[in-house]
Simulated scan of single mutants.
Amino acid sequence: MSRNVIVVGCGRVGSQLANMLSENGNNVCVVDRDANAFSNLGRAFNGSVVQGVGFDEDVLTRAGIATADCVAAVTQSDNANLMTVEVASHIFNVPHVIARLYNPGHERAYEQLGLDYVCGTSLVAEEVFSKISSGHGFHLDTFGDYEVLRFSLNLERNDMKSIRVSQLEKAHDVRIICFERADGRTSSIPTGDSVLEHGDSVLACVRSTMVPSFARWIQD
């Protein structure tokens, strides 16, 4: 599913994230206060860019925040990232905001604020990409390396009418927590032998790095 995403910060992480999102069919706008930073995107990038401060309301408006599905603030400043996602969330009501966090001592504060974040210095772009790809519409929570998702199962895309829970779990490092039939006639905590059908509503725990490949099982 194509999303409108604003990436604030065009350093190594921001440019890598923007290209990953663009290559996967998303509409991407990159914001950075330094116009020279946009050279990090390379010639293959087919999104748009806006020069300016990421938490400035006018800048975000020019970047298309009115229709943004997600804002990812990945500058090298924790304060700038926090202010950006706060403005995006509370002023523009963007449904999914993600902040890069350098200081792990602030994790508890971010959790108390209910902010989605990525903390670390390596594979940051990949982790943010996974969070965006999982989609706020069916992304419920994050636990360490895992994402909790609720979605409608897509078997038609995989030319199947049904699949055993054990097959799905083994192939994708996933744990199916609960499911409900598409017609609402029954719900269950499954065993490995339980059979899932197209359109079933599924609650699952998925390793973050597996979300992009697992997305083919999720109805858009």
Rank of each mutant, 00 (worst) to 15 (best):
E180P: 01
R181L: 14
R181I: 03
R181W: 06
A182Q: 14
A182P: 04
D183H: 08
G184T: 10
G184V: 05
R185M: 08
R185N: 14
T186I: 01
T186Y: 06
S187G: 11
S187A: 11
S187E: 08
I189W: 02
I189M: 11
I189G: 00
I189N: 06
I189F: 13
P190Y: 02
T191S: 15
T191M: 05
G192D: 09
G192Q: 07
D193V: 04
S194W: 04
S194M: 07
S194N: 10
L196R: 03
L196A: 07
E197D: 11
E197K: 13
E197A: 11
H198D: 15
H198L: 07
G199N: 09
D200H: 08
S201Q: 13
S201G: 06
S201R: 13
S201N: 11
V202T: 00
V202E: 00
L203F: 05
L203G: 00
A204D: 03
A204K: 01
C205P: 00
V206I: 12
R207L: 10
R207Q: 14
R207I: 02
R207N: 10
S208P: 01
S208L: 12
T209W: 09
T209D: 14
T209Y: 12
M210Y: 03
M210A: 12
M210F: 05
V211H: 02
